[in-house]
């Protein structure tokens, strides 16, 4: 049994690679909130979707992530493709199209802030809403991206930053409709109609709850300085 995003999760007949990814999340056995079974059909689908050939065990881990992402919205949670970290008790998500350099920019923030910054998940954090809670929480997951950044923790998600490459380094606040357009491409949109409708509801909540930013940055070593000042030293 594994405790991920404060859900008890059971993965049936899991292979060694997925077991290794999930190991830090292992918990004492209990009643599963979510049960995931990867079928041969799921594996076949991942094989078709993958750009490069991968082992069966790797494909199983991707399929398990997808199956989870299909179910999560029905439990007030969803997968946000982003790098999430915490600074001074505030969670920040960096979202960007792949290849933009969100991890590079995260590393600039890490260099600037040192121990004050904790990476929660570098690639596929889950975001979960709770009744009565002012902010959603972003959680570490076993799927940490190729840089393998992240832990098993959580953070109250207060800032969503969309990263773009540009000449100067700055952060500007975005309006909800501007952020919505950028957000759609970074959220896992389920095939399941109930989950998809719920995802749209959760996105509306996210846009109403979090501060929304566009960070323009270059690759300079001090690229984090100005955006950090704008977001945290208001």
């Amino acid at each position: 049994m594994y405790r991920i995003a404060e859900f008890n999760m059971d993965f049936k007949d899991m292979g060694g690679y997925l077991k290794k990814l999930c190991a830090p999340f292992e918990c004492e056995s209990g009643i599963a909130d979510i049960e995931i079974t990867v079928t041969p059909k799921d594996l076949e689908r991942e094989k078709e979707l993958a750009e490069n050939p991968h082992s069966r065990e790797y494909l199983e881990s991707v399929a398990a992530n997808r199956l989870l992402a299909e179910i999560l919205p029905q439990k007030d949670a969803f997968l946000l493709h982003s790098a999430v970290f915490e600074v001074g008790g505030e969670g920040v998500a960096f979202a960007a199209r792949s290849g933009t350099g969100k991890t590079t920019h995260l590393l600039r923030w890490q260099a600037l802030l040192g121990d004050k910054l904790t990476v929660i998940n570098g690639d596929k954090p889950f975001v979960r809403f709770f009744e009565g809670s002012e902010y959603p929480f972003a959680y570490g997951t076993p799927w940490k991206g190729k840089e393998n950044l992240g832990n098993t923790g959580k953070t109250p998600l207060k800032h969503i930053c969309f990263i773009e490459r540009g000449g100067e380094n700055k952060a500007e606040e975005l309006k909800k409709d501007e952020a919505a357009d950028l957000l759609f491409s970074q959220v896992y949109m389920p095939k399941n109609p109930q989950s998809a409708a719920k995802t749209l509801e959760l996105l509306e909540k996210l846009l109403n709850t979090c501060k929304l930013w566009k960070i323009t940055c270059n690759l300079d070593n001090d690229a984090a300085k100005n955006p950090y000042k704008t977001i945290f030293e208001r």
């Binding site: 909800k176 409709d177 919505a180 759609f184 109609p193 998809a196 409708a197 749209l200 996105l203 509306e204």
Partner: peptide, 11 residues
Amino acid sequence: FVTNEVAGKTV
């Protein structure tokens, strides 16, 4: 399709 209100528009 499914639809819902997001940021003041139906999506």
